[in-house]
């Protein structure tokens, strides 16, 4: 869910806005390295993809369904900086055009769903990739673990922000525990669909999976002995 107006008090919301703006500025520089002058059209289309893919509902259990957040998916596919930009743009459009998520809470939402999710998720992806064998297929389990970790960490980050700027007197330890439990379950769904999607892109266009670029090998020139 997007954080609405009035959930986090004004000073913390404003501070979060400043932090989010600084984060976006860093990502704008990084995205230019990932996509060079193609940044705007490509990131725009990937943002449209993230927006669309959030509408795919998948069945979780009896009568309930979940949907993808797409933060780690975008980071694995197009790189962490562009991924943050795409998810942030989706959040800004949702707040400004669809009134989904408060305008004053935009900084909070960008921190939680774009910055923290990508930092924790993509960081985990990189660590897992280091532990797994050095081949392309390792990107799939890495994406799984990254997405799995990102959701509960974002939830805990939300509880932390709420502890600083929350408006109700909640038993924070219990809320943190409950949020963590619920979001581990949500994280499994996110992880499954993220890993399966990365796997399906990997089979068709491996060159489009940013996290799999480290496995690319330099072409080797081998000369056959003449006259054989």
């Amino acid at each position: 869910m997007h954080v609405p107006d009035g959930f986090i008090n004004a000073p913390v919301s404003l501070a979060a806005g400043v932090v989010a703006a600084a984060g976006l500025a860093i990502c704008l520089r990084g995205a230019r390295r990932e996509l060079d002058e193609k940044t705007a059209p490509l990131a725009g289309l990937v943002a449209a993809f993230v927006f669309a893919v959030q509408m795919i509902n998948f069945p979780v259990g009896v009568g309930t369904s979940g949907h993808l957040m797409g933060g780690v998916l975008a980071a694995v596919l197009v790189g962490p900086y562009t991924g943050v930009l795409c998810v942030s743009v989706v959040l800004i459009v949702q707040a400004l055009f669809f009134a989904d998520g408060g305008l004053s809470a935009l900084g909070v939402n960008i921190i939680l769903m774009a910055l923290v999710t990508t930092l924790a998720g993509y960081g985990t992806v990189l660590v897992v990739q280091r532990l797994l064998p050095n081949k392309r297929a390792s990107a799939v389990p890495a994406a799984f673990v990254g997405a799995l970790v990102s959701v509960p960490i974002a939830a805990l980050a939300f509880v932390a922000l709420y502890a600083v700027g929350g408006t109700a007197d909640l038993p924070l330890a219990e809320v943190a525990l409950a949020m963590f439990g619920v979001h581990v379950v949500i994280g499994i769904g996110e992880a499954l669909i993220t890993a399966l999607t990365v796997g399906s892109v990997l089979t068709v266009r491996p060159d489009l999976v940013h996290a799999a670029r480290r496995y690319e090998q330099e072409l080797e020139l081998r000369t056959a002995p003449a006259g054989s």
Binding site: L24, L28, R32, A40, P41, G44, L45, A47, F51, I92
Partner: peptide, 9 residues
């Protein structure tokens, strides 16, 4: 750049 990304999206 951010505005352009939003425009394309």
């Amino acid at each position: 750049t951010l505005v352009q990304i939003m425009t394309f999206m």
